[in-house]
């Protein structure tokens, strides 16, 4: 393999890896606030893409994307308020099944609203064949959009958690829910907020990546599994590590096409998930000690 092709594969891997990282961060936000793995996480990405495509028909592109993020954020809040907020101390099994049910309902609703057709936004700059030459490597400007927008979103998110009152309240809740409540923080509102943030960041990812990957009513589930793989790989709850883990999975998947036909691409990433779960469930960046203290 010549080095140019090698870098081409790396760039493709980074594009996908970015989206996996975004999904993983979505998982982490909700997990930190509630201890729940939200199986409907991939659906937020799908909703972001689908809504943006629909809105872009009569709104300028940036407004359409912002609108899609807003709509998905509201849906995130509605999901929490309807299905999660009012339950008291639900068991893990119950929460798993409820979020799976939610993901099915969202997917089926999307099927009835948008049909089975595959959709995409136009490329933000140029067309699908426009490319920027960097050395001997060609990069589509959309790849830069994906990486750039996601990076901004992640930085903004971490600024929010570190420098705003609301963000600190959320972290306090994640660290010790009872103590936070004693300080007058509404834990329930923080959970709702975590669903909104998680939906919002998922929608941003879904909107920027859909010119490249396209979006369909059922594109959420594979993303959820891969995002979860990345979240585990980085150590659950650790969003900085998720970015690195996302790159690893994305690049690994992109190179797997060498070894196996593209139809088995998902088999590779899920086998990796199983492998990590069996060998090192605390993730490659996480500490085993810390993982033992968590609920599962």
């Amino acid at each position: 393999m010549n080095p140019d092709l090698f870098f081409q594969y790396v760039v493709a891997g980074i594009t996908y890896g970015t989206i996996y990282a975004v999904v993983a961060i979505g998982f982490n936000i909700i997990y930190n606030a509630t201890g729940i793995i939200n199986f409907a996480q991939g659906e937020f990405v799908m909703l972001g893409g689908m809504t943006a495509v629909t809105l872009s028909r009569f709104l300028p592109l940036p407004v359409a994307i912002l609108g899609a993020v807003a709509v998905t954020t509201v849906i995130g809040a509605v999901i929490d308020i309807l299905f999660i907020r009012w339950l008291r101390g639900p068991s893990v099994l119950r929460m798993i099944i409820i979020t799976i049910g939610v993901s099915i309902l969202v997917r089926e609703a999307a099927l009835h609203v948008w049909g089975e057709s595959v959709r995409a936004l136009p490329y933000f700059t140029g067309t699908s064949v426009t490319s920027i030459k960097m050395g001997n490597v060609y990069i589509s400007p959309q790849v830069l959009w994906v990486v750039g927008v996601s990076a901004v979103a992640v930085v903004a998110l971490s600024a929010f958690f570190n420098y705003t009152m609301l963000g600190r309240q959320m972290r306090a809740c994640a660290a010790n829910r009872d103590a936070a409540r004693l300080c007058g923080i509404s834990a329930k509102n923080m959970v709702t907020l975590s669903f909104m943030l998680s939906a919002g960041i998922g929608a941003i990812g879904g909107a920027v990546v859909c010119p490249i990957t396209y979006v369909q009513y059922d594109s959420g589930t594979p993303l959820a599994i891969k995002g979860f793989t990345v979240a585990i790989l980085g150590g659950i709850g650790n969003s900085a590590a998720a970015v690195g883990a996302g790159m690893i999975l994305g690049i690994l998947e992109s190179f797997s096409i060498w070894v196996l036909p593209a139809a088995y691409k998902e088999v590779i990433s899920i086998s990796l998930l199983l492998l990590i779960l069996f060998i090192r469930p605390s993730g490659i960046f996480g500490s085993a000690e810390e993982a033992r203290l968590k609920e599962f």
């Binding site: 798993i96 589930t221 998902e266």
Partner: peptide
Amino acid sequence: KGHYLAMATLGFGVI
């Protein structure tokens, strides 16, 4: 256990 078991079996099904 818990979420990990659910995800692992889900992963097996998808494979």
